[in-house]
């Protein structure tokens, strides 16, 4: 310690006070910041969902539903074939629309387009729509993670 430094009662007290405020304040701030960040609630993850009868989706049309809180789009591409993709546009997250006449998915927000394999073919979307696995069991459409 510098012997020249003269500790008076006043600067001892003000430094002690400053340290005390700091020591109290940092954990308090930490708690408040943690409060703002939403908690990660673990919800039951479904492995498979039953999306109803495939005959309920008319040929060349689509249906949007939730799978583990995420929006997915089912499209009946052939008489006996149903495909499933994430319905969330990979650009900025709008929900895409199936265009039966062009047979593609279109996002109306900034005009991205995805073909029937989910590939991004036009617009600003940087990547394809995420595919889901579809199984037909006794006319029921079972959707699971690919």
């Amino acid at each position: 310690m510098n012997p020249e430094r003269h500790i008076t009662r006043r600067n001892f007290l003000s430094e002690a006070l400053a340290s005390w405020v700091f020591i109290t304040f940092v954990p308090l701030l930490y708690a408040l910041i943690r409060f703002i960040i939403p908690p990660n609630i673990r919800e039951k993850i479904m492995e498979v969902i039953n999306a109803g009868k495939y005959t309920d989706i008319p040929f060349n049309s689509a249906k949007i539903l939730r799978f583990n809180k995420k929006a997915i789009i089912l499209v009946r591409t052939e008489q006996d074939q149903v495909k499933a993709y994430s319905a969330v546009c990979t650009h900025l997250g709008c929900i895409v629309e199936f265009k039966p006449d062009q047979r593609l998915f279109k996002c109306n927000c900034h005009g991205s387009e995805f073909d029937l394999t989910g590939k991004n073919i036009a617009g600003p979307a940087p990547s394809p729509l995420k595919p889901y696995r579809v199984e037909l069991k006794e006319d029921n459409v079972l959707v699971s993670q690919a």
Binding site: I64, L65, R66, A71, C89, C94, E97, N108
Partner: peptide
Amino acid sequence: DPLASAPLGI
């Protein structure tokens, strides 16, 4: 409607 496609003109 969170399960509807985004309409045109957003």
